[in-house]
Amino acid sequence: MRYEAGEDERTEKPMIPWIELDSASIPGEAATLRLKQRGAEFSIMLGSNELMNSRLYGSEEALAELAAERIAGRKAPAVLIGGLGMGFTLRAALAVLPADARIIVAELVPAVVAWARGPMADVFKGALDDPRVEVVTGDVTALIARSKGAFDAILLDVDNGPDGLTRSSNDQLYSLSGLAASKAALKKAGVLAVWSAHPDDRFTARMKKSGFATEAVSVRANAKKRGRKHVVWVGVN
């Protein structure tokens, strides 16, 4: 039991237990994602590691906002988001991009898209139904490789950042060759924005070596600007 103090007295409130709603395999990996719910809160887990939580989304919003600032004023901007997650980056992008924008979201795990339209529909608030949005089920690395000069911005929230956790092949996305592919997929003065749970000086160096004018921005995980810090790299082509 947890005790919470009121204004005049302490009241006893039971802890709400987590309930596992569903699980899904990750293509090409033995690992399994699990969707859990506690009241109105959702969590996506990989083993004992929490990949994302519906209460902590400030840095995911910053990923979209920082990129959008750098392409502001462009006509009909095309934006690729790698990783659907809980939709916070997508929702933030929709809030700041113009009505003529086109947003492609690449999500590797089909179940994550199903969760967005099912148990987490209230979290997504209809974002997938916006006419500017197209969801592609598949590997964002392959999509980037076949796209030449296609995007004004690429936003990557894949895995735990450059230090892969869920899928070993994600390391390719953040390698020198992967960064070169992202650079080739961007238009002139396009933006590559990368989310990470942790700072990584080696990745900063790789982005710079790949020809991006790079800034590593420290952002709060909590939308209320409190709590632990994450990192968003912003690189201009």
Rank of each mutant, 00 (worst) to 15 (best):
L51Y: 08
L51N: 07
M52C: 12
N53D: 02
R55P: 00
R55G: 04
L56N: 13
L56F: 13
Y57E: 01
S59N: 00
E60A: 04
A62S: 10
L63A: 10
L63G: 09
L63K: 09
L63C: 09
E65I: 13
L66T: 08
L66G: 06
L66K: 11
A67P: 06
A68R: 02
A68Q: 00
A68D: 00
E69I: 10
E69D: 15
R70D: 03
R70A: 02
I71W: 01
A72P: 04
A72S: 12
A72M: 06
G73W: 02
R74C: 10
R74D: 02
K75F: 13
K75S: 14
K75I: 14
A76D: 08
P77Y: 05
P77F: 04
A78G: 14
V79F: 10
L80D: 09
G82I: 10
G82Q: 07
G82L: 09
G83Y: 03
G83S: 10
L84P: 10
L84E: 00
L84T: 02
L84N: 01
L84M: 05
L84A: 07
G85W: 00
M86I: 01
G87V: 05
G87L: 05
F88A: 07
F88K: 03
L90Q: 01
L90H: 00
R91S: 12
A92E: 01
A95Y: 08
A95G: 12
V96C: 15
L97D: 02
P98M: 00
P98S: 01
A99G: 09
D100G: 08
R102S: 14
I104W: 14
V105K: 10
V105M: 04
V105Y: 02
E107G: 14
E107I: 14
E107C: 11
L108T: 10
L108H: 10
V109S: 04
V109H: 03
V112N: 06
V113D: 00
V113F: 00
W115A: 03
A116F: 04
R117V: 04
G118R: 00
G118E: 01
G118C: 00
P119F: 02
P119G: 05
P119K: 09
P119D: 03
P119L: 06
M120P: 11
A121P: 05
A121I: 03
D122Q: 13
D122H: 14
D122V: 11
V123C: 01
V123S: 01
V123H: 03
K125R: 15
G126M: 07
A127V: 03
L128E: 06
D129T: 15
D129G: 14
D130P: 12
V133F: 10
V135W: 04
V136F: 15
V136W: 13
V136A: 12
V136N: 08
G138S: 11
G138Q: 07
G138K: 10
V140S: 05
V140L: 11
V140P: 14
T141H: 14
A142M: 08
L143S: 08
L143N: 07
L143F: 13
L143Q: 13
L143D: 05
A145T: 15
A145W: 10
A145I: 08
R146N: 05
S147R: 13
S147G: 08
S147E: 09
K148S: 14
G149C: 08
G149K: 12
G149R: 13
A150V: 12
A153R: 12
A153C: 09
I154F: 01
L155V: 07
L155H: 04
D157Y: 06
D157E: 09
D159F: 08
D159S: 13
D159R: 07
